[in-house]
Design a protein around this nucleic acid. Structure first.
Ligand SMILES: [Zn+2]
Ligand SMILES: [Zn+2]
Ligand SMILES: [Zn+2]
Ligand SMILES: [Zn+2]
Lengths: 137, 137
DNA sequence: TGTATAATTGCAACCGGGTGCATTTACGAT
DNA sequence: ATCGTAAATGCACCCGGTTGCAATTATACA
């Protein structure tokens, strides 16, 4: 379901600012950074305040339209309609690759069975070393 | 080895500000937040600038005396002499429990074998639901 | 279509953390 | 003990993100 429809269904108003953000997610091929989203909104509608954008990203997140992921200083927003995956980011060369969403299933099971603790690892950004950078000292 | 000895060995100077931070880690039972560290330093030596404290925490981290962990808005510093573990933090009630450091070994192995990607998960702060909060809707 | 009103926005100030630069200080050499 | 110097500190400012509040606006309803 579209982000705007979800907004409406949950009693939120459809504002031009929200339309811009929702459309941008809809058109995006992949995840977006806050910076990219702000730049896009400002391009189409220069006056929009950053707090408006952040507040709306929070709303989309809580409605389940968008996933927010962070690892260290990275923050990524990810349209949930795209499907799920994790990211492997090399701390040396910066290269990034996608990774199967099942990766953390064993951890989730261990936490549930041994610790009675429920976790759902969604769209993690994982820092480490790629093959090349690992081989080179 | 003591944090101060490590500083000296690596050519860093022993300043009163660094002594305060190192002693605080040494006396601490468990991990510390940046807030707690700043408060402690200010108590003993009111004029110290926050940038001095953050810079020194970075140095201790790079020397391996201290681990810095983050999950969302939480930042925790952890004296490495205490041993390693992960934290399970309930997003509803805030309760926190420690968790075995081996937890992510299967994930590390999968990443190495299938993706040629090296990760060392140290002292993660994991958000989820504890048993009580999971049962209650 | 016009109006009432609650939701949303813009603003200004704030927060934790980080940085460039001038001043101060720890410490090795004398 | 003094001194020279590189390293460390304090300061002032920056940055991304957040918050309280007054002004604006989308919408439900008359
Ligand atoms: Zn993604
Ligand atoms: Zn790499
Ligand atoms: Zn800890
Ligand atoms: Zn709980």
């Amino acid at each position: 379901m579209s982000c705007l429809a979800t907004l409406k269904e949950n009693g939120f108003k459809i504002t031009p600012q929200r339309k811009l953000i929702a459309d941008f997610f809809h058109d995006a091929e992949s995840h977006l950074t806050a910076e990219e989203i702000i730049a896009h909104v400002h391009e189409k509608m220069p006056g929009v305040n950053k707090s408006t954008i952040y507040r709306n990203l929070d709303i989309f997140e809580h409605l389940g339209c968008v996933l927010k992921s962070e690892s260290g200083d990275r923050v990524i927003y990810h349209h949930t309609e795209e499907g799920h995956h994790h990211h492997l980011v090399c701390v040396k060369c910066g290269k990034s690759m996608d990774c199967d969403e099942m990766l953390f299933r064993p951890v989730e099971k261990t936490l549930r069975d041994k610790y009675n603790f429920r976790v759902d690892f969604k769209h993690q950004v994982i820092s480490g070393l790629c093959e090349n950078c690992y081989k080179q000292p």
